[in-house]
Amino acid sequence: MDYVPEKNVIQMTSRVFTDDLELAFEKKYDKKFYLGTSREIPEAKKYLKIYFAEKIKVKVNGDLQPIKYLGKEIEDDVLVCYYTIPVPSGIQTLDIKNTTLFDMYAEQQNMIHTNINDTKKSLLLTVEEPEGLLEY
């Protein structure tokens, strides 16, 4: 997550192993998606938006902000998704909840790296602790 003050947004990138996400989608939506292949289903973008909107929540200065899904690409066996989060003013706190793949893997860990106000901080989120607060 990188804060771009000139645009009043946080640019966010997520990286998920494609096969893990495929399994999660198949379990949740009862269909195959073939992400990043020539067989990818036409409505994959819609489901990616829905899934990540459910799984990732970001509060800036205590206020929940909408996450705008921009698109995706495949790098080897990893699905890389791009998002923006509006930031109405400067950032003092970021409260991040990320439960991606937690319903699939009890040992799942989600790393969050931030670069806000030229300060780099990280969080490790787990099934037991899916949310963390960073102060800047």
Score class of each variant (00 low, 15 high):
V4Y: 12
E6T: 15
E6C: 13
K7T: 06
K7E: 05
N8A: 09
I10H: 00
F17L: 11
T18Y: 07
D20H: 07
L21C: 08
L21S: 02
L23K: 08
E26Q: 12
K28H: 14
Y29Q: 06
K31G: 11
K32I: 13
F33Q: 00
F33K: 02
L35T: 01
G36L: 01
E40W: 02
P42D: 06
A44G: 05
K45V: 02
K46V: 03
I50H: 08
I50N: 02
K57W: 12
K57Q: 09
V58F: 06
N61S: 10
D63V: 15
K68P: 01
Y69R: 07
G71L: 06
K72P: 06
D77P: 07
L79V: 06
V80T: 07
V80M: 05
C81S: 06
T84P: 00
I85M: 06
V87Y: 05
P88W: 14
I91M: 04
I91C: 03
Q92A: 12
I96Q: 01
K97S: 13
D103V: 14
M104L: 13
Y105V: 15
A106P: 15
E107M: 12
E107I: 13
M111P: 12
N117K: 13
D118H: 13
L124N: 12
T126Q: 05
T126A: 07
E128R: 14
E128P: 11
P130Y: 05
P130V: 04
E131I: 09
G132E: 00
L133A: 05
